[in-house]
């Protein structure tokens, strides 16, 4: 499943393992001499197993003994790859975004960038100023990856680096991505970004075990995208953006359970009824992408449209 690591990483690992080997050898030797038995050397081995860097559930990098991973409830990179590609059986994640409640607070963007170690100009979720033209009123629209059921991006990926799992999430494996950017070109929602140069805090995350469900560490020359916070869902928690919103914009849940939970009020309501009662729609339905993200129209707005002190849309004809 997992492909080979890039050369520099490999060589880095090799040298540490060689050092470990020497250390083990010395300790083993010392153990044999001091304890005069096999038992001593065995203990020395056990305490000096391969050290690896992993991400804790709080997102902090820690160095742990590989053999201790399971005790602290963490997985190796290989295990994360297998589980990450599989997805969570029986789930179909959906998001509902209530446009009437968004006031461009951007806490969703900030928490997302923080969680996925993104640079300020990199957005997995982006709050757009939308304008339907004519005399219609402008509004704010948070735009994550739509996690389409007919995804144009995974269709074109030549190496299965971006793929759709059984719970509906479209993930990206940046240990496999070759950086051809075909998926970026194919995505009609501009939901994908690329690591054009070294990622943020490159040194800090060097050699850290890659978590495919968080896409951290980010890697130069690979694509990154919104993951519906697959790592949080595995823990039964709402996505980063959903829980960060102060205005009750996001509902998130499992369509198989027909329930979505508001990230702000924590209220849980029937999913289909929410869609029906509010005339929900999906983005660019004419493209047939079948998104998993639904939008509730910007009706009964809680906030006026204000941007940089202006209440009107300045760049009415965007770019």
């Amino acid at each position: 499943m997992k492909e080979k690591k890039n050369p520099e990483k490999k060589s880095g690992k090799k040298s540490t393992s060689r050092r470990d080997f020497l250390k083990k050898g010395l300790l083993a030797g010392a153990g044999t001499v001091l304890a005069g038995g096999v038992v001593g050397s065995f203990n020395a081995f056990a305490q000096n197993g391969e050290k690896i860097k992993v991400l804790g559930s709080d997102g902090k990098v820690m160095t742990v003994d590989k053999s201790h991973l399971q005790e602290i409830g963490l997985k190796t990179e290989e295990e994360m790859q297998v589980a990450g590609r599989e997805g969570i059986p029986g789930k179909k994640w959906v998001m509902v975004i209530d446009l009437g409640k968004c006031k461009n607070a951007r806490l969703c963007m900030a928490s997302c960038q923080h969680a996925h170690e993104l640079k300020p100009e990199q957005h997995h979720i982006n709050v757009l100023r939308m304008d339907r033209g004519g005399d219609t009123a402008p509004f704010f629209m948070p735009k994550p990856c739509q996690h389409c059921d007919n995804p144009p991006c995974t269709k074109v990926c030549p190496v299965d680096a971006t793929f759709k799992r059984q719970d509906g999430i479209v993930l990206i494996d940046n240990e496999r991505c070759i950086g051809c950017r075909f998926c970026i070109a194919a995505c009609p929602y501009s939901a994908r970004i690329f690591n054009w140069s070294d990622p943020k805090d490159k040194e800090k995350y060097e050699d850290v075990e890659y978590n495919i469900e968080l896409n951290v560490p980010q890697k130069k020359g690979t694509v990154s995208k919104c993951l519906f916070s697959a790592d949080r869902l595995r823990e039964g928690k709402l996505p980063y953006c959903v829980s960060a919103c102060p205005n009750g914009v996001y509902w998130f849940g499992d369509a198989n359970e027909d329930a979505v939970t508001n990230g702000t009020t924590k209220e849980t309501v029937p999913f289909k009824k929410l869609l029906k009662d509010n005339a929900a729609y999906t983005l660019l339905p004419e493209l047939g992408t079948k998104p998993s993200v639904y939008y509730l129209p910007e009706k009964d707005r809680l906030f006026p449209f204000e941007y940089e002190g202006k209440s009107d849309l300045e760049d009415k004809h965007h770019s």
Partner: peptide, 18 residues
């Protein structure tokens, strides 16, 4: 390509749909 070092992935993991 962003990762020319992984060009071989085209043969290891190649997707015929692409």
């Amino acid at each position: 390509m962003g990762r020319p070092d992984r060009a071989l992935n085209l043969f290891i993991h190649g997707r015929l749909q692409s």
